[in-house]
């Protein structure tokens, strides 16, 4: 297996507020040393709560934001510091699907202009007839009709708009699709349609997907592997089944236990985390999760724990190897 994407020690800082007049701005570590690979044909999900840095990882990998440290290799080539022009051939090989299908489609553009926009940028030489043919092809790929080509976004439902967003991302036939909360804004019945569509397209087109989401049920269905983020760091990376049946990081345990299960007969001991996620401007020393962790020891404050491989492919960043964590699923 070859990794399509290799990310090593990725860092991204944003300028925070000034602590006082004439003082330099504080640094906000949105992504703080994140490393992972995605194999060709794989679906890797990045889960975490708001502010965990998962969206920033996606944007930085696409080079929509410039990394402040670390390396990104795509298809074996390092793209971390390529110039805009040098980046162009890579850009068409990785495309983005956005969360909000209402905000990410220009209401004044027709379907042909929206879905065809990537062609206008990356293949400006092709004629109108060819462009139209390619747009129609992309529309039927996502289950819309070629006759929709002259319509405007407001004529579509939320689910259909997200299909348009996917058609736009796929028209250049990318290898890597980065989907940032693509179904979060949709109703449940429609969510299932779009999840099915993405998995079907992955098989048909041999796509590799980085799926960014906070919805653990959807993530559990769609991913081969899952990476859990907390305050800019990965705390656990594991194959999907292993993460759900035998989580190894206390944060993953708490996250899984917080997901409400649609069965009133299930009554379980829930781990309710106290407090909020700490401010990334002033993160705790040592392990970022220790302030909310019920297993924290004084030693947890000393240094940020490194990711260690505990079982094949199952990594965790926690110094406590002596605790047995609960799973909502049980061992199958």
């Amino acid at each position: 297996m070859t990794a399509l994407l290799e990310v090593r020690d990725l860092r991204k800082w944003f300028a925070g507020p000034r602590p006082g007049p004439f003082r330099p701005r504080a640094k906000l570590h949105a992504v703080d040393g994140v490393s992972f690979d995605i194999q060709r044909g794989e679906v890797l999900s990045l889960v975490g709560e708001s502010g965990s840095g998962k969206t920033t990882v996606g944007r930085t990998v696409l080079r929509l934001a410039r990394p402040d440290g670390g390396t990104i290799r795509f298809g074996g080539t390092e793209i971390t510091s390529l110039s805009r022009d040098a980046l162009r051939p890579f850009r068409r090989r990785m495309q983005l699907v956005f969360q909000d299908p209402y905000a990410s489609l220009n209401p004044k553009m027709t379907v042909e202009e929206i879905v065809g926009a990537p062609l206008a940028i990356h293949e400006p030489a092709i004629g109108t007839a060819e462009r139209r043919r390619r747009v129609e092809e992309a529309l039927s790929l996502v289950g819309l009709l070629p006759s929709h080509i002259g319509r405007y976004p407001h004529e579509f439902s939320g689910g259909q708009r997200q299909r348009l967003g996917i058609a736009r991302a796929l028209i250049l036939r990318p290898e890597l699709l980065i989907a940032d909360e693509p179904v979060s804004a949709l109703d449940v019945s429609v969510q299932a349609q779009v999840v099915n569509l993405m998995l079907e397209l992955k098989e048909r087109l041999g796509l590799t997907i980085l799926f960014i989401s906070h919805d653990l049920a959807v993530v559990g269905h769609i991913s081969d592997r899952i990476a859990v983020m907390y305050l800019g760091r990965l705390v656990e990376v594991a194959p999907t089944r292993a993460l759900f049946t035998a989580p190894r990081h206390p944060y993953t345990e708490a996250l899984l236990s917080a997901v409400p299960i649609p069965d009133p007969m299930v009554r379980r001991e829930r781990i309710v985390l106290t407090g909020d996620v700490p401010s990334p401007l002033n993160p705790p020393s040592g392990c970022p999760f220790r302030t909310r962790c019920r297993y924290a020891l004084p030693a947890c404050a000393e240094a940020p724990p490194a990711l260690r491989e505990m079982a094949p492919g199952h990594w965790k960043a926690c110094i406590r190897d002596d605790i047995a964590l609960a799973s909502p699923v049980g061992v199958a």
């Binding site: 449940v188 019945s189 299932a192 349609q193 049920a217 559990g220 269905h221 999907t240 993460l243 699923v329």
Partner: peptide
């Protein structure tokens, strides 16, 4: 149509979506 947590990672049966809108 809601993916079940207890089946996470056990293969990707199609979710039972309700067609249409």
């Amino acid at each position: 149509s809601v993916p079940r947590l207890d089946l996470a990672g056990l293969g990707r049966e199609k979710l039972a979506a309700i067609p249409g809108t």
